[in-house]
């Protein structure tokens, strides 16, 4: 009989447990870009850090996004980021960087970089830090300060490679670096190691891989490495038989790679 109160207590909590499991969260609504529905669902959800985090994300999505909403979201993210080390804390730190980078009326790249660096310092291997890494690279590669030379900007971006742990982040970072080298009209050969690394990592989506194969071949040909260039041209032809560039690549192969047109 002494077990009866415990049993009753357990039975009494069952509805609560069930409700917690079934509690609506706003994530599905946010995935459908229904921010108002998401806010409503988060309000009805079990209180907690993830619910607060979700509410802040929904505030950034509810149109029209007002400065007050952004400020409220920023407040929530700050509290969450400074009070834990879990997924929610890391996600909140990431969003603090994003807000400074892309949500403020006047972007604050220095603050965005500070948040990303803190995330990398505290949780370097995590998904959130690795996602922040390439965003930080953009801030390094395209600084507001006109005194930073293109070569210095690229060098600063390249220093971040040491912190890229996940293959996805490595691949993304190499591509961003190669593109910056082309953007600044630095010698194309400087982009080659990044393109080769990105290709080797094997994480490129199909259209990007087509571009990268052509880029590698072209830059190799430009540098006089006809044998390697031929290898990448040939891979491109084999993998992308329907690509519009096929004729051009075949012409280059037929003309003797490296000799130009």
């Amino acid at each position: 009989m002494r077990r009866a109160p415990c049993l009753l207590l357990l039975l009494g909590t069952l509805p609560l447990v069930a409700r917690a499991a079934d509690a609506p969260t706003g994530w599905p609504a946010l995935m459908r870009l229904k921010a108002d529905d998401a806010l409503r669902d988060f309000a009805a959800a079990t209180p907690g850090r993830e619910t607060d985090f979700g509410r802040a994300v929904a505030l950034l999505a509810r149109s029209p996004v007002t400065p007050e909403q952004v400020a409220e979201a920023r407040g929530i993210f700050t509290r969450l980021a400074d009070s834990g080390t879990d997924d929610v804390a890391q996600g909140a730190r990431y969003f603090l960087g994003r807000i400074a980078q892309h949500h403020l009326e006047t972007a604050d790249p220095a603050e965005a970089a500070r948040q990303y660096r803190q995330l990398l310092a505290e949780h370097g291997d995590s998904l959130w830090a690795q996602t922040a890494l390439t965003r930080l690279a953009l801030l390094e590669l395209y600084p507001d300060d006109p005194a930073v030379t293109p070569a210095a900007a690229v060098a600063a971006g390249e220093r971040l490679l040491a912190q890229a742990r996940l293959p996805a982040a490595q691949s993304e970072l190499h591509l961003v670096l190669a593109d910056a080298i082309f953007f600044y009209r630095l010698p194309a050969a400087e982009a080659l190691p990044h393109l080769l690394a990105a290709e080797r990592l094997g994480r490129l989506d199909r259209p990007t891989r087509a571009d990268v194969l052509v880029q590698i071949a072209e830059v190799l040909a430009l540098g006089g490495d006809a044998a390697q260039a031929r290898k990448f041209y040939t891979t491109f032809l084999a993998e992308y038989p329907l690509d519009q560039r096929n004729f051009m690549v075949r012409e280059k192969l037929a003309a003797g790679v490296g000799r130009g047109r």
């Binding site: 969260t25 995935m31 993830e50 979700g54 994300v57 950034l60 999505a61 996600g91 892309h102």
Partner: peptide
């Protein structure tokens, strides 16, 4: 685009 896709991606992660 960045703002919107951030939200969708994070929602998909936590969902």
């Amino acid at each position: 685009n960045v703002q919107r896709e951030d939200n969708i991606a994070v929602a998909a992660y936590f969902a």
